[in-house]
Simulated assay, not measured.
Amino acid sequence: MRAPLTAKGAQRLRAELEELKSVKRPAVINAIAEARAHGDLRENAEYHAAREQQGFIEGRIKQLEAELSHAQVIDVAALKPGTRVVFGATVDLADAESGEEVTYQIVGDLEADIKQGLIAISSPVARALIGKHEGDTVTIDAPAGRREYEIVGVRYVG
C-alpha cells in the first residue's frame, strides 16, 4: 500500500530534497576537499566530521527520494467529505472536562509534526477521529489516560 501524503507535505519534502541536493551536498563536498588539503587524513577531525555529514545527507536524500516515489499524494482541498473526518482533515477538538481546544490536521506518517499540529494517520488520536463527524464525542486513549473530546469543527484546507 502506498503511504498517503498531503500535497503540502509532499511540497515540503521536495523542498527539503532540493535543499539537500543543491546546497548542502555541494557544501559538504567542498568541506571534504578543503579538509583533504590539510594533509594527513587519519588525525583530521574536520575531514571525518565532513565525511560523517556527507553520509547523513546522502542517506536523507535516498530516504526522501524513496518516500516521495512511493507516496500517494492527496489534494486535501479537492476532498469533499463534508463534516466527516478523513485523511487531510483539520479537526478542532474541545476537551470535555476542561473545555480547552486543540487543532490537529491528519497527515501521512512521513509529514507528521506534533509541534505544528500535524498528526500521523496511524496515531491513536487520528484513528479515533477517522470516520467521526462534527459534533461527535470521541474517547482517546492518551499516555496520560483516557480523554474525551468533542469534535467542534472539521475543515479541509489545501
Rank of each mutant, 00 (worst) to 15 (best):
S22M: 11
A120S: 15
A78V: 06
F56M: 08
K115W: 05
A144D: 11
K80N: 15
E52Y: 11
I151G: 08
G55E: 10
S98V: 02
A10K: 11
V28D: 01
L13Y: 03
A96V: 15
V154E: 06
A27S: 12
S69W: 01
T90R: 15
L5C: 13
E34S: 12
V85A: 09
H70F: 06
F56K: 13
P26K: 09
Q72N: 08
A10I: 09
I32G: 03
L64F: 04
V85W: 07
Q116N: 15
G9C: 09
R14W: 03
M1I: 08
A142L: 15
I119W: 07
V157T: 14
V125Y: 05
G117S: 07
G55C: 01
V28L: 06
H38T: 11
S98I: 02
E43G: 09
H133F: 14
A45H: 06
R14S: 10
P4E: 10
Y149H: 07
E16V: 04
E18A: 13
R36A: 03
K115D: 13
G59P: 01
T103E: 08
K21G: 00
K62C: 00
A89R: 02
Q53S: 12
H133A: 07
A126W: 05
A89L: 05
E101P: 00
E101M: 05
A78I: 04
V28Y: 01
G108I: 08
E111P: 05
E134N: 02
V73C: 04
K62Q: 12
S122W: 04
H70W: 03
E148K: 15
T6R: 05
Q53W: 02
K8R: 15
D136H: 09
K24E: 15
A126Y: 03
D109G: 14
G9P: 07
E101L: 00
G117A: 07
G39H: 03
G55P: 01
D113E: 15
A45T: 09
D92I: 00
K80W: 01
L110Q: 12
T83H: 07
L118S: 06
N44M: 11
E101C: 00
A71K: 08
Y149N: 04
L118V: 05
A33R: 14
Q116T: 06
V154W: 06
E148C: 03
G108A: 09
D113R: 14
Y156N: 04
I114M: 12
K62N: 02
I130V: 13
I151S: 07
F87D: 12
I121G: 03
L79N: 05
G99E: 03
E52F: 10
L129M: 07
P143N: 09
A120R: 10
P4T: 10
E19P: 00
E67Q: 14
V73F: 06
